[in-house]
Every structure is written in C-alpha cells, then in structure tokens.
C-alpha cells in the first residue's frame, strides 16, 4: 500500500458504492459501473469497486489493486470538489 494505515482506518474502508448517491449528483448519472484507470498502476476498476474511506473530512477512493488514491471528494456548503489526479481516465458510455 502506498500509505501505511492503522487498523482502524483499514477497518473503516467501504466500497465506492457508498459514495454513489453523492457522485451521481455530481456526474449526473450513476457511476458505480463506470470504469476508471488508476494513474499509478493502470488497473481499470469500476468506481463501485474502488476502496472508499469516508470517515474523514473528505472522502478518498483508492485503487483496489495498488492502494493509491484514484479520486478525492470534498464537499463544502455550496460546492463539491472532485480531485481526479489519480485517475488517468474515467470512461463514460455514450447514450
């Protein structure tokens, strides 16, 4: 893993699904089945498969393969910041 985590932090991990509602409000559609590529190890995972750490002030979604951060989400009173540096892409289907 890129960042050492204590047991409590590791146990607080949930699936990307946990952020599905909030991410849907940002992207305008459910992204749990949306594939994204980890910029660190190039593994492609669906957003719902990412490991979500949701107990801190921001939410962090990590790659299930290498543990690096793929997406970071911070909500303020009037905005949602989505840091996508850790993803080399997110692939949305045309409709």
């Amino acid at each position: 893993m890129a960042d050492p985590m204590d047991d409590a932090t590791a146990a607080a991990m949930v699936d990307g699904n946990a952020l599905a509602g909030m991410l849907a409000s940002v992207f305008g559609e459910d992204v749990t089945m949306t594939p994204g590529r980890c910029a660190h190890c190039q593994t492609v995972s669906m957003v719902g498969e990412l490991r979500a750490y949701v107990r801190g002030p921001g939410r962090v979604l990590r790659c299930p393969a290498c543990g690096e951060v793929v997406l970071r989400v911070v909500e303020t009173s009037d905005s949602v910041y989505v840091d996508v540096r850790g993803a080399s892409y997110l692939r949305f289907s045309r409709r």
Binding site: D15, G16, N17, A20, G21, A24, S25, D30, T32, M33, M46, G48, E49
Partner: peptide, 9 residues
C-alpha cells in the same frame, strides 16, 4: 430520500 442507487452490487 434519493435512489435507487448503485449498479455494482
């Protein structure tokens, strides 16, 4: 409430 959400599980 909002939903349903999630297509993965």
């Amino acid at each position: 409430l909002r939903g349903p959400i999630g297509g993965y599980f």
